[in-house]
Each structure stands twice: as structure tokens, then as C-alpha cells.
Measured scan of single mutants.
Amino acid sequence: SLEEAIRRAEEALRKGQTFEYAGIRVTTQEALEKFRKWAEKQK
């Protein structure tokens, strides 16, 4: 689910890792916010 993907992205960010979902790379807090906004639109 998208909620699960967001949780995994947050977890990866805390560990300093890269999270990738549907071709979207989350490597920074800013990218995480963009990913969250994108995920909201997918619902």
C-alpha cells in the first residue's frame, strides 16, 4: 500500500538509505515530502 511505502521511505531516510518506489527515489526529507504529496494524489 502507499501508506506502507511512505513508512518504508521514512525508515530508509532515518537510516540514511535510499528508498525507491514506482521509479521515484527518496533520498532527502524534501524528496520524502514530494513523495507524500504524490502518494496523496494516487488515492
Rank of each mutant, 00 (worst) to 15 (best):
Q17P: 03
I24G: 03
F19R: 00
R36G: 02
W38P: 00
A31D: 15
T27R: 08
Q29K: 12
A12M: 09
T28M: 05
R14P: 01
E30H: 07
R36D: 01
K34P: 00
L13M: 07
A39K: 02
W38V: 03
E11C: 09
R25G: 05
R25A: 12
T18H: 13
E20N: 05
E3Q: 11
K41V: 11
W38D: 02
E3D: 14
G23C: 12
L13W: 05
V26A: 02
Q29T: 11
R14D: 08
K41S: 15
R7V: 09
T27P: 05
A31Q: 15
K37L: 11
F19D: 02
E40A: 07
K34Q: 14
I24A: 02
E40F: 05
E20Q: 06
E4F: 04
T28P: 02
T27W: 05
R7Y: 09
T18P: 14
T27S: 14
I6V: 15
E10D: 06
E10W: 05
A31L: 09
K37Y: 11
T28N: 13
E40G: 05
I6F: 07
E40S: 07
K41R: 11
S1E: 13
A31E: 15
E11I: 09
L13C: 04
E33W: 03
E10K: 06
L13H: 02
R8K: 11
S1V: 13
F35Y: 02
I6Y: 07
Y21P: 02
V26Y: 08
V26W: 04
E10F: 06
E33Y: 04
E33H: 05
K34W: 15
I6A: 03
A12R: 04
R14C: 12
K34A: 15
L32H: 00
I24W: 15
L2W: 15
K41A: 15
K37P: 00
T28Q: 02
G16M: 04
A5K: 05
R25P: 07
E3F: 06
A5Q: 09
R25S: 13
L32E: 00
A31N: 09
Y21H: 07
Q29D: 08
L2H: 05
E20S: 04
R8M: 13
S1A: 13
A22F: 10
K43S: 12
R14M: 11
E33V: 08
Q17V: 11
R25W: 11
A39H: 03
L32Q: 00
L2P: 05
Q42P: 04
A12Q: 06
T18K: 09
K15N: 15
I24L: 08
L13Y: 04
F35G: 00
A39N: 02
E11W: 01
F19N: 03
A22R: 08
E20Y: 07
G23N: 07
A22I: 06
R25N: 11
L2D: 01
E4I: 10
W38Q: 03
G16H: 06
E33T: 06
E40P: 01
A31Y: 04
Q42N: 08
E20H: 06
Q29I: 13
G23E: 05
I6L: 10
T28A: 04
F35V: 02
K15T: 12
R36W: 05
A9S: 02
R14V: 09
F19G: 01
L32R: 00
S1R: 13
E20V: 09
K37F: 07
E40Q: 08
E10I: 08
R7T: 09
A5S: 06
R14W: 06
L32G: 00
A12D: 03
R36F: 07
E11V: 07
R7F: 09
F35Q: 00
Q17G: 12
R7I: 11
F19I: 02
R8I: 07
R7D: 05
T27I: 07
E30W: 05
Q17R: 09
E11F: 00
A39G: 04
G23S: 06
K37G: 07
T27Q: 10
T27C: 11
I24D: 01
E3A: 11
F35I: 04
L32F: 10
K43D: 09
E4P: 03
A39F: 08
E11D: 12
T27D: 15
R14A: 15
L2V: 07
Q17F: 12
G16I: 02
R14Q: 12
W38L: 06
L2S: 02
A39Y: 08
E33P: 00
L32T: 00
R36V: 13
F19Y: 08
T18S: 13
A39E: 02
T27F: 04
A9D: 00
E40I: 06
K41F: 10
K37R: 13
F35D: 01
L32D: 00
R36K: 15
K41D: 14
K15I: 11
R36E: 07
E10R: 06
K34V: 12
K43V: 14
K15Y: 08
T18L: 11
R8Y: 09
V26Q: 00
K43R: 10
S1N: 13
A22V: 06
E4Y: 05
A9T: 01
E20A: 04
V26H: 02
Q29V: 13
E10N: 05
A31W: 06
Y21M: 05
G16L: 03
E20P: 00
E20G: 01
S1H: 14
Y21F: 10
W38M: 05
W38T: 02
R36Q: 10
E40V: 05
T28S: 13
K15S: 12
I6W: 04
A31V: 07
W38H: 03
V26S: 01
E4A: 12
E40D: 10
A9F: 05
K37S: 10
Q42M: 14
A22W: 07
L13V: 13
A22K: 11
T18F: 15
G23A: 03
W38F: 05
R36Y: 08
V26L: 09
K41L: 14
E10T: 10
Q42W: 09
G23W: 06
A9L: 04
E33K: 07
R25F: 14
Y21N: 02
F35M: 06
Q17C: 12
R25Y: 12
G16A: 03
S1T: 12
T28V: 03
E33N: 08
G16S: 04
T18R: 06
V26R: 00
E33A: 08
S1K: 11
L32A: 01
T18A: 14
E40H: 06
E4W: 09
A9Q: 00
A39D: 01
L13N: 01
Y21I: 09
E11A: 09
T28R: 01
R7A: 12
K34L: 14
Y21K: 02
E10Y: 06
T18C: 14
T28H: 04
A22N: 14
E11Q: 07
E33M: 07
E40Y: 06
F19L: 02
A9G: 05
T27M: 10
E11S: 07
A39R: 02
R36N: 03
S1G: 13
W38A: 03
T27V: 08
E10P: 01
E4V: 10
R36P: 01
K41W: 13
E3I: 11
G16W: 03
Y21D: 03
A9K: 00
I24Q: 07
A9V: 04
G23H: 05
E30F: 05
G23I: 01
K34F: 13
G16V: 01
T18D: 15
V26F: 12
R14Y: 07
R14E: 12
R7W: 08
G23Q: 04
R8C: 15
I6N: 01
I24P: 00
E30K: 08
R25H: 13
A5H: 07
K34N: 13
G23P: 01
F35T: 00
A9Y: 02
F19H: 02
T28E: 03
F35S: 00
A5T: 09
E10A: 09
E4K: 08
Q42L: 13
W38R: 02
I24H: 12
A31P: 00
A22G: 11
T18Q: 09
Q42Y: 10
A39I: 13
E40T: 06
A5C: 15
R8T: 08
A5W: 11
G16R: 03
Q42E: 09
R7S: 11
A12W: 04
L13D: 00
L13P: 00
A39Q: 03
R8H: 11
K43W: 12
T18W: 14
R14I: 09
E10H: 05
R36L: 15
T18N: 13
L13E: 00
E10Q: 07
R7Q: 11
Q29S: 09
E11K: 05
E30D: 11
Q29M: 14
T28D: 14
E4Q: 10
A31H: 14
T18Y: 15
E11R: 06
I6S: 03
A31I: 06
E3V: 10
E30N: 07
E20W: 06
R7K: 13
E11T: 06
E33G: 04
L32I: 04
A31S: 14
E30R: 07
A12F: 08
I24K: 04
F35C: 05
K15F: 09
L2R: 03
G16F: 04
R7E: 10
E11L: 04
Y21E: 05
E11G: 05
